[in-house]
């Protein structure tokens, strides 16, 4: 790309191509060295910029409030995992101790926890009751259940005036004309959801923007959330022998 003294624009493509070819002809001069240095810098800077953005583009473009949320989430998860690790470590120590009574206690505790999860056992404890009088679809209900599970619900039961269904891992929801069908049991509005867990976490989980309360009320329905010290879940899932 040597400096050109003839200051006139190309009249035809041929002349332009000639100029391009002439400028591409390799020859060593101070200008060429300078330009080469600049282009090396450009190439280097480009790749640096590309590799710099790909790694943490999501975080660096996030707003401060999002970052705080991410950090909170991580801190919460770490605390939970720490607690879990401590509990498991304790259980391991106990089992290694060889005390048969303790081993049985541990096994019972685990069977109890699994029974809670599988829904084969009645439950009682503090939690919330949610009443939905109108405008509930299966999708909304599913979202709400997921939200409750994420918030640490230990047991969930969905009921209407007559029937009650325990929500477990393989529970499914479908729309019907008068309400929703939960694992094949048709429930009519109003519908009650009884949840056992930390009510100070469960209730806000349903009130988040775009959550259960938001969705139902947007369609003209009504949701009442009551925090109760004593919630009983009596519906169970029959234990199936493998």
């Amino acid at each position: 790309m040597a400096g050109q003294s003839k200051h006139r624009p190309a009249k035809s493509g041929r002349i332009a191509r000639l100029r391009l070819r002439r400028s591409l002809r390799p020859h060593l001069s101070r200008t060429q060295v300078l330009l080469t240095a600049i282009f090396v810098l450009l190439g280097f800077a480009t790749t640096a910029a590309i590799s710099g953005t790909s790694a943490n583009a999501i975080l660096s473009n996030a707003r401060q409030s999002d970052l705080v949320a991410v950090l909170d989430d991580l801190a919460g998860r770490e605390a939970r995992l720490q607690a879990e690790a401590t509990r498991l470590e304790n259980a391991r120590q106990t089992l290694l101790g060889g005390n048969e009574y303790q081993a049985v206690t541990e096994a019972k505790r685990r069977a109890n926890a699994l029974a809670q999860l599988a829904g084969t056992q009645k439950l009682a404890g503090s939690g919330i009751q949610v009443t939905i009088s109108r405008n509930l679809t299966a999708t909304t209900l599913l979202d709400a259940i997921q939200e409750l599970r994420d918030s640490g619900a230990t047991g969930i039961e969905i009921s209407d005036k007559d029937l009650a269904v325990r929500v477990v891992a393989n529970t499914w929801f479908a729309d019907t004309e008068t309400g929703v069908s939960v694992s094949g049991t048709e429930l009519h509005l109003p519908i009650f959801i009884r949840v056992i867990g930390d009510s100070s976490v469960l209730a806000p989980a349903l009130r988040i923007p775009g959550g259960l309360v938001d969705t139902v009320q947007a369609g003209g329905g009504k949701v009442v959330i009551t925090e109760l010290p004593d919630v009983e879940i009596n519906a169970t899932v029959p234990l199936q022998m493998p």
């Binding site: 060593l28 330009l35 080469t36 600049i38 282009f39 090396v40 190439g43 280097f44 590799s51």
Partner: peptide, 22 residues
């Protein structure tokens, strides 16, 4: 021509050295 080679050299340098941008 030499500057074009310089560009390629720069890109290769960037790919090989993987510089962390301050």
């Amino acid at each position: 021509m030499i500057p074009a080679i310089g560009l390629i050299v720069g890109i290769l340098l960037g790919l090989i050295l993987h510089p962390t941008v301050p």
